[in-house]
């Protein structure tokens, strides 16, 4: 197993701590002029998102986590797993509930998603930054309101609920930023 020494760890380095994959956020080297050197690492658990601080003896190492990021096309959900396909090799993979926790409410099929693989298994699925989805349910808006201020909740075909301006109607296709959950505009208008 490859390992990485404290002096090689930088922001983005993926390491294995107690069997879990982590991403290094910060690495601070400290050393009294005539004393023991340490590296304090801020690391984020890639499974739970939890951030830890760990101090190592300078020169010590961690195992490198087998993390790979690849673009995959979302195919379908069978009720238990979400199925993805590598568009180059046509290889298919299934992701569990925890991996799609954030992405599930934005994808309906055929979207290209950034998938993080840990030991070859999907660990986390990023929805595309923007998606276009149809509104399946929203209250009829107040005629004449075009300001977008206030707004109303609208349920999209994937189940996500976003706030849309009052003039946006049921059945319309809207563009949404998945990172913020914000409505960006109507599609084709």
């Amino acid at each position: 197993m490859a390992s990485v020494s404290t002096n090689e760890m930088k922001s983005g380095t993926k390491v294995l701590i107690d069997g879990d994959p982590y991403a290094v956020l910060e690495n601070e080297y400290r050393k009294p002029g005539k004393g023991q050197a340490t590296n304090s690492l801020r690391v984020r658990n890639l499974k739970t998102g939890r951030v830890l601080e760990k101090t190592l003896r300078s020169g010590d190492s961690w195992e490198v986590a087998d993390i790979e990021e690849t673009d995959m096309q979302y195919l379908y959900n069978d009720g238990e797993f979400w199925h993805f396909m590598n568009p180059a090799s046509f290889e298919q993979m299934q992701a569990g509930q925890s991996a799609v926790e954030d992405a599930a409410k934005w994808i309906k099929g055929e979207e290209t998603c950034r998938v993080m693989l840990f030991n070859g298994v999907p660990l986390y699925v990023n929805a595309p930054n923007t998606v276009e989805l149809q509104i399946v349910e929203t209250d009829p808006g107040v005629r004449g309101d075009t300001s977008g201020g206030g707004g109303k909740p609208a349920t999209l075909e994937t189940g996500a609920v976003v706030r849309v301006p009052l003039f946006v109607q049921q059945g319309e296709l809207v563009k949404v930023d998945t990172r913020t959950g914000d409505y960006m505009g109507r599609v084709g208008k």
Partner: peptide, 23 residues
């Protein structure tokens, strides 16, 4: 000291004092 977690086997007290000094 929390920063001494990786130094559980350390026997040299000066190394531990250095950790207190730098952290």
């Amino acid at each position: 000291l929390p920063e001494a977690e990786a130094f559980a086997d350390e026997t040299d007290r000066d190394v531990l004092l250095d950790l207190w000094m730098s952290h």
